[in-house]
Design a protein around this nucleic acid. Sequence first.
RNA 1: GGCCCCAUCGUCUAACGGCUAGGACUCAGGAUUUUCAUUCCUGCAAUAGGGGUUCGAUUCCCCUUGGGGUCACCA
Length: 482
Amino acid sequence: MSIPKNPDIRVRFAPSPTGYLHVGGLRTALFNYLFARKNNGSFILRIEDTDRKRYIPGAQEDLLKTIKEVGLDYDEGPIIGGDYGPYIQSERSDLYRKYAQELIDKGAAYYCFCPEERLEKLRNEAKENNTAVMYDGKCRNLSLEEVQEKLARNIPHVVRLKIPQEGSTVFYDVVRERVEVDNALVDDQVIMKSDGFPTYHLANVVDDHLMKISHVIRGEEWLISVPKHIFMYESLGWKVPKFVHLPLLLNPDKTKLSKRQGDVAVEDYLAKGYLPEALINFIALLGWHSSDDREFYTLEELIKAFSLKRISKSGAVFDVEKLNWMNGSYLRNLDLEYVAERAKPYFEKAGLDILDHKKYLKVVDNARNRSATIPEMIAHSEMFYNDLAFSAEYKDIVSKENAQKLFEFWIEHLSSHESWSEDEIKDMVKETTVVIGVKGKELYSPLRLALFGEVHGPDIPTLIDILGTKEAIARLKSVLNA
RNA sequence: GGCCCCAUCGUCUAACGGCUAGGACUCAGGAUUUUCAUUCCUGCAAUAGGGGUUCGAUUCCCCUUGGGGUCACCA
């Protein structure tokens, strides 16, 4: 029933479960997803939890939940499994140990027994000299005997990459094109920690190879570590995947998007009432753009239009203003029932009795025209459910003689039948002008105040339509002789 | 600071080496509306600077400047 996947296109999103899904992470996930779907490839989810110090219980579950909520379904990964599992790195320790040993055997890596204090000293010296912090290679050429002896004595150790000291590494990134790094400037990166867990670099390369990843699509912060990865691929005799380094998402001050300068957690945006559709659409346009002026895309349309070739090189500021605009637009254009369904929890939390579904839909339809996010809709809706409270100024307007006469007139007329069309209400307005002799602001202000509690707001036919004739009359009566 | 990456309106961005540098957000003004909101229209606003190459550079090359990333037994 389903078409077989193209084995040449396999990409992964590999988050670290350290708390929440970062919007930058969502963008990375999205681009991976789009590329996979566009090419009938596989989108794999892998959990990179090799840092036990940063382990946060429940973070992994939250991550999966959020990814599901925004509609990015994966083909292989935790829970659903796949042919290349397990998809959680902490369950793959044997693999990393095996390949670390292989790198050592091949002379591409070595045991390092330097204590933390020594490295600390090295770091401080480098800082003082204003140079890059690099391991000085003390353990690089330990003899086999020395290594055996230290291992036998259980001296804590790590495994480091034995990066060549001459030459340079050249690679081609799909976005950056040619990048060249001098090998002498590449550090002897730790690949196995003293706790027996691998670092990102080893785990990532091993898994990407074993999981047959074809394109490594990730944030630009990884660009500089590519030479280390290439060194491992080549030392192990493995095929190097294609690299695609995405431009960073930025704070308004152009630094890498971070907490402190606003929300960065996808779940925060979701909780604040942004629609997944809008969030996805907005984020897709950060660092990617089609050749035309189009800005609105469903996920399906994004898949169709997506291309790695059109990813931009420079970082993109995450502009909440534009997100607000886009979310508001989605709010207004998505199916009303759908928006109403999404808004439900917010209305319920605000204590509004929305059991009358027909009325609720009308309320939502009115509010969505005036809001950028769902929570904002509450402020435009409360008055349709709660008793109205008037300020002294408003009381004044309502109690004016003409206003009172106007109310009496409307109560009487509205009582004549159950439902009123827009035109009929408009006719009544005209009639009011003739009979009572009020018009314009003098007519609409008290009327809207009585029905809605505010001077500004929806037009009168809409108000009466939402409220229903009965409630409209009740409200008019309550301001009579008030 | 070393290394790497980047550079079009304030922001997101478009422009086979060839129109008056286009669109969107924001902001300002206007139209529609009894008001508010929506919607529509108009406007403000950019090729960082300097050298080349070329008949012609936003576009290609170099330098400068600016910004960012990275420099962990974190990812």
